[in-house]
Simulated scan of single mutants.
Amino acid sequence: MTAAYTLYAKPGFAATTIERLCSEARISNRAFYECFGGREELLQALHERCVEESLAVVAKALQEAPSTLDGRVKAGIRAYIEFATADWRRARIMHLEVRRSGDVLTASRQRAVDSFARLVEEASADFPQARSLNRRLVALGAIGALQELLIEWILADEQPGIDELVEVAVHIFIRGLSAS
């Protein structure tokens, strides 16, 4: 898994063969197939691990956040962005390779988006200003925007700063959730 974590991040899923994975991990092809049905299954396992870890980080941040809509949004977004960007490989797998892999991660990606959308819905449920719109649709739109901000962070020649990413994402989430 460690070899795949690095290779799937760069040079990327499409460019990483099983032979290269096994060589990097210093295992035989047979040993690989005793653990995984193929490189797609390994990518899914890596993606799901990253998602589970990030969900836990965000849920903890939301629990510890001030009990205001702004406080929860800021805490959740900062926790997610800092977690995703703390390791470039994680950011690439969760936001770039998940798209580049085609149909391989479609179901896994949808489960992740749904889980994060539920977190946003739950975190905003107690606030009257967040009730006028369909919170699920707002959450999905804001999550999509956050993903694009992180793709920009990954691919930009001059990466935006983490504080700037947080500021923009918080603005998008708050404006979406506070709209009437």
Rank of each mutant, 00 (worst) to 15 (best):
residue 51 V to M: 05
residue 43 L to H: 03
residue 41 E to P: 00
residue 52 E to S: 12
residue 41 E to H: 00
residue 72 R to L: 07
residue 91 A to Q: 04
residue 30 R to Q: 07
residue 93 I to K: 04
residue 34 E to A: 15
residue 33 Y to K: 01
residue 35 C to F: 01
residue 76 G to R: 10
residue 109 R to M: 07
residue 30 R to T: 11
residue 86 A to V: 01
residue 63 Q to L: 14
residue 75 A to I: 06
residue 82 E to C: 11
residue 60 K to N: 08
residue 55 L to F: 01
residue 87 D to Q: 03
residue 92 R to M: 13
residue 49 R to G: 15
residue 35 C to Y: 06
residue 81 I to Y: 12
residue 106 T to V: 15
residue 75 A to E: 13
residue 68 T to P: 01
residue 41 E to L: 00
residue 66 P to Q: 12
residue 82 E to Q: 11
residue 91 A to T: 15
residue 91 A to G: 15
residue 32 F to H: 12
residue 83 F to K: 08
residue 98 V to E: 11
residue 35 C to D: 02
residue 64 E to R: 05
residue 106 T to G: 04
residue 110 Q to S: 14
residue 52 E to Q: 13
residue 66 P to S: 12
residue 70 D to H: 13
residue 78 R to V: 05
residue 62 L to P: 05
residue 57 V to P: 00
residue 54 S to N: 12
residue 82 E to P: 01
residue 26 R to C: 13
residue 109 R to G: 14
residue 111 R to K: 07
residue 61 A to P: 13
residue 95 H to C: 06
residue 49 R to T: 11
residue 97 E to W: 05
residue 83 F to W: 05
residue 60 K to Q: 04
residue 98 V to F: 11
residue 86 A to I: 00
residue 28 S to Q: 11
residue 82 E to Y: 02
residue 65 A to Q: 05
residue 32 F to N: 11
residue 50 C to Y: 14
residue 93 I to D: 11
residue 97 E to A: 06
residue 33 Y to V: 00
residue 54 S to M: 15
residue 50 C to S: 04
residue 98 V to Q: 13
residue 32 F to C: 13
residue 57 V to W: 00
residue 29 N to F: 01
residue 57 V to T: 09
residue 92 R to L: 05
residue 111 R to G: 02
residue 45 A to Q: 07
residue 92 R to N: 11
residue 99 R to S: 14
residue 86 A to P: 00
residue 71 G to E: 06
residue 52 E to D: 12
residue 42 L to I: 03
residue 56 A to H: 06
residue 109 R to D: 07
residue 71 G to A: 12
residue 28 S to I: 09
residue 78 R to Y: 05
residue 39 R to T: 01
residue 41 E to C: 00
residue 89 R to Y: 02
residue 84 A to L: 09
residue 109 R to F: 13
residue 72 R to T: 08
residue 60 K to T: 08
residue 101 S to R: 04
residue 45 A to N: 08
residue 58 V to P: 03
residue 40 E to R: 04
residue 106 T to I: 08
residue 103 D to S: 15
residue 99 R to C: 11
residue 101 S to K: 02
residue 42 L to V: 04
residue 25 A to G: 15
residue 72 R to K: 12
residue 79 A to G: 06
residue 94 M to N: 02
residue 62 L to I: 15
residue 90 R to F: 01
residue 54 S to C: 14
residue 107 A to C: 04
residue 26 R to E: 15
residue 81 I to Q: 08
residue 89 R to S: 09
residue 73 V to Q: 03
residue 105 L to F: 06
residue 68 T to Y: 02
residue 27 I to H: 08
residue 46 L to W: 02
residue 54 S to D: 05
residue 35 C to W: 02
residue 111 R to M: 04
